[in-house]
Design a protein around this nucleic acid. Sequence first.
DNA 1: CGGGATCCTGCAAGATACTG
DNA 2: CAGTATCTTGCAGGATCCCG
Lengths: 138, 138
Amino acid sequence: MSSKLLQAESQTGRACGNSASDMSNCPVRDVMDRIAGKWSTLLLEALAQRPYRFGELRRLVPDISQRMLTQTLRDLQRDGYIDRQVFPTKPPSVEYRMTELGHSLFQPLAQVLLWAEQNHASVKAARQRYDESELARN
Amino acid sequence: MSSKLLQAESQTGRACGNSASDMSNCPVRDVMDRIAGKWSTLLLEALAQRPYRFGELRRLVPDISQRMLTQTLRDLQRDGYIDRQVFPTKPPSVEYRMTELGHSLFQPLAQVLLWAEQNHASVKAARQRYDESELARN
DNA sequence: CGGGATCCTGCAAGATACTG
DNA sequence: CAGTATCTTGCAGGATCCCG
């Protein structure tokens, strides 16, 4: 099941993480490491809807620091997921917009996020069971 | 597009990250934070194929430390994605096996990993373009 | 308004050694 | 074999101030 991916990998020679210095040759890690960031998915989720300006994103995700907002946006832009457009008004305004590449990534990603919502209860239940059985052992 | 998720969220009141202390009420972050770990996806990928023993997983992912292997496996077990079965042989052997919940998570997740493989080149290209244009500005 | 430049902290993750 | 127990460290991420 879900075999194509894994077949490809077992042909390439095991599940990445190989010769220590080829992390950039491991697509899984290379892409996931960016998505993994604390705020990446939240911002991708927002920008998948429609373009947003910097301040709008701040208000959308209140507990992000402006430092991390700037940095995460730049990282996403660097990987080609979003575009940045500056309007030389005064004061200046900057709009972030998801690219085609970003949308194509978000399509499968959204399925994972959907799974997360639908199965959050099961995960929390499993977590509680585990913690209780661990508690009983001590 | 991909609207159900986002509709649900805008009804709930913005893209999580709300009142600072409700991180466990944000399914996206709660699930993603586990997947986001440096080794989680690689181990899920392996165990989606078939059960593995501890030492086998070590050999599959050579540059993981045994500390992180143990910890990541326990975290995945805690969230109900994998099961741990001890065979009281001597020396003891322990088998890790993906649960149904784990497989149901891996199904959408595999699509993201597949995307990563197929679009890795585009990402690397975008990254290079960005770096070069940044270089030119300085 | 949309950042940059600094400083600081906690925690993820590595290294090493020991054990049932 | 399959772990625990420590010690250590790099870096993600937060707080704060400044600037065009």
